[in-house]
Nucleic acid binder design. Structure first.
Length: 293
DNA sequence: CAAGGCTCCTGATAGC
DNA sequence: TGCTATCAGGAGCCTT
């Protein structure tokens, strides 16, 4: 399940292998993968053809490739199971290959790019996709203007986030997953940060003091940076790793997926609770539920 | 308008 | 063995 660290690993891989290359043609193999491109697959392919890819950007779990001299960007979201792979044109198609982008690799294109490779969007569960959008004056695809800056963005405003928590009548995990308050946090890193901060997922946001918010944000950043550090080992190959679930950071998880296993802090068996059509993992001793009002 | 619930999708796995 | 139920969950959209 790609969250901010996994998407950042992908962004770095794209920066190395795709940035600066010119699109030769695009093949859309599944309509759902471009459903956010309302004009359709043909339009998507047509508009990309002949365009040069700029440096890939990221905000939260979204990443985008600006198309040179067009004021537009290819926006990508990996959803649950999406992968952006740089593969040899000769490699056999993946079972869930949805979109293929080929490049011209002519003189003047990215010298670091590996010729003979193509970009593939592979997505088993089709929650993710690619689309093309106009950029806002900030260089952001217009459809993600509502996505907040992420906690690794130097311009993320800690104080504004704290004030938003104070104003809200929601609970902390909902707030962490609310991409218009803070982006890039998904179910896994939310549980990890809450475990580190020793906070129950249903603590009302209005009860947060400034130090408590600061501490939680610190843990969010720490766990994401730790994941990023480990994920950083795998992106110097032609494979742009997005496989966060089976990969490198799983063994470092302290909360997510650890039902009935001992809390790494106090030894109490960890619990799983159904929550918002998914699960929350927590330590019943370190992360006490808030008193009901 | 804010908050919370529903829904899209496929494959792995559990249970009968 | 083969069927069905359950679970995984990001985010747009809908309801309250």
């Amino acid at each position: 399940m790609p969250e901010l660290p996994e998407v950042e690993v992908v962004r770095r891989g794209l920066e190395r292998w795709i940035g600066g290359r010119t699109v030769a043609d695009v093949e859309v193999l599944h309509p759902r993968a471009i459903r956010r491109h309302l004009a359709g697959a043909e339009d998507f392919a047509h508009r990309l053809k002949g365009r040069r890819m700029g440096a890939p950007m990221r905000r939260g779990k979204y990443l985008w490739l600006p198309l040179a001299d067009s004021g537009t960007s290819v926006l990508a979201h990996l959803g649950m199971s999406g992968q952006l792979l740089v593969k040899s044109e000769q490699a056999p198609d993946e079972k869930h290959l949805r979109i293929r982008v080929r490049f011209t690799d002519q003189e003047g294109d990215n010298p670091g790019a590996a010729p003979g490779t193509e970009l593939r969007f592979v997505d088993q569960r089709t929650f993710g996709g690619l689309s093309l959008h106009e950029n806002t004056p900030d260089g952001l695809p217009d459809v993600i203007a509502h996505i907040a800056r992420d906690p690794l963005d130097p311009l993320f405003d800690d104080e504004a986030f704290h004030q938003a928590l104070r104003r809200s009548r929601s609970t902390i995990k909902r707030a962490l997953l609310n991409q218009s308050l803070i982006s890039g946090v998904g179910n896994i890193y939310a549980d990890e940060a809450l475990w580190r901060a020793q906070l129950h997922y249903e603590r009302p946001t209005a009860t947060f003091t400034r130090p408590r918010t600061a501490q939680l944000l610190g843990h969010v950043r720490d766990v994401m940076n730790a994941a990023l550090a480990v994920g950083g080992t795998s992106f110097d190959s032609l494979y742009v790793n997005v496989n966060g679930e089976s990969g490198y950071f799983e063994r470092s998880l302290d909360a997510y997926g650890r039902e009935d296993e001992p809390c790494r802090r106090c030894g109490t068996p960890m619990r799983r609770r159904p929550w918002m059509n998914r699960s929350s993992y927590f330590c019943p001793r370190c992360q006490r539920p808030p008193r009901l009002s």
